[in-house]
Computed example of a mutant assay.
Amino acid sequence: MSRATRRIVVAHLTDRGMSPADIAAELGVSRDTVRRDLTETPPPAPAPEPEPAAPVAAGLLLPEGTQLRQDLNVLTAAFRARPEDVARFAIHQAAQGVRHHWQARAAARARQREQAQTS
């Protein structure tokens, strides 16, 4: 256990009412170590987590990237629309293409099955 972690645990156990001797026995350290941990300044608070990137579209978070931003700017200018609307349109178009591809594959498999059954 690191020193910083031990200091946090010692402070927590002290707050819960444990004596330094009990804490020392629990952690397998000397009472002097526990006393020293209690008298030293508390460890620094953990750094706050960074704020998430601003959403590109309402309800949709995308990783920030130069190319993504440039592409979104081009589409926004071309369609004269809000970034949210452009992102929605682009996602819809991409999904529509995938749907057509899946439908074509399913139809081809059905034709192959029909041909296999008639042969």
Rank of each mutant, 00 (worst) to 15 (best):
P63C: 09
F79K: 07
R80W: 08
T39I: 08
P50E: 03
V98C: 00
L75E: 06
R36I: 08
A58N: 01
P83N: 04
T76E: 03
P44R: 07
A47N: 05
L75T: 11
N73R: 15
R36C: 07
L61W: 15
L38A: 03
L61F: 15
L61G: 09
T41V: 11
I91K: 04
F89E: 04
A95H: 04
T76I: 09
A94C: 03
P63Y: 04
V29Y: 03
L61R: 13
A95I: 03
D32E: 13
V29I: 15
Q96S: 06
T39K: 01
D71F: 12
T41C: 00
V29S: 05
G59A: 05
H92M: 04
R82D: 08
E40Q: 11
E84Y: 00
R80M: 09
P83W: 02
R99F: 05
A47R: 14
D37W: 01
T41W: 00
A87G: 01
Q96W: 09
T66V: 15
P42M: 05
E84R: 11
Q93R: 13
R35W: 14
L72D: 04
A45I: 04
P46A: 10
R35Y: 01
G65M: 10
D32C: 10
A57V: 10
V34A: 05
P48E: 10
V86G: 00
A95E: 03
L72S: 11
R82M: 02
L62Y: 11
A53H: 03
T39V: 12
S30N: 06
A47E: 13
F89K: 04
E51Q: 07
A54C: 08
A45T: 09
A81C: 05
Q96R: 09
S30C: 07
L60F: 15
T39F: 04
R35N: 14
A90Y: 09
A57C: 10
F89S: 07
V74N: 13
P63S: 14
P55L: 10
T33E: 02
P42D: 11
R88P: 00
D37M: 05
D37K: 06
D85C: 00
A81V: 03
R88N: 08
R88Q: 06
A54M: 10
P46V: 06
P63E: 07
L62N: 04
V86P: 01
D71T: 11
A77S: 14
T66M: 12
G59F: 05
G97H: 01
V29E: 06
V56A: 12
G97V: 02
E84L: 02
T76F: 08
D32L: 12
T76M: 01
R88S: 04
T41M: 00
G97L: 01
A54Q: 11
Q96T: 03
Q67R: 14
P63G: 07
E49T: 10
P50W: 07
V29N: 00
L72W: 11
D32Q: 13
T76A: 13
A87D: 00
H92K: 07
V98F: 02
A47T: 15
T41E: 09
A53Y: 14
V98I: 11
D71C: 10
P55W: 07
H100N: 11
V29H: 00
A87H: 02
A77T: 13
A87M: 06
V74P: 09
T76C: 08
F89G: 06
Q96M: 04
A54N: 10
P48Y: 08
A45S: 12
L68D: 01
A87Q: 02
H92P: 00
A54R: 14
P55D: 13
Q67P: 00
T66I: 14
R31K: 15
V56R: 15
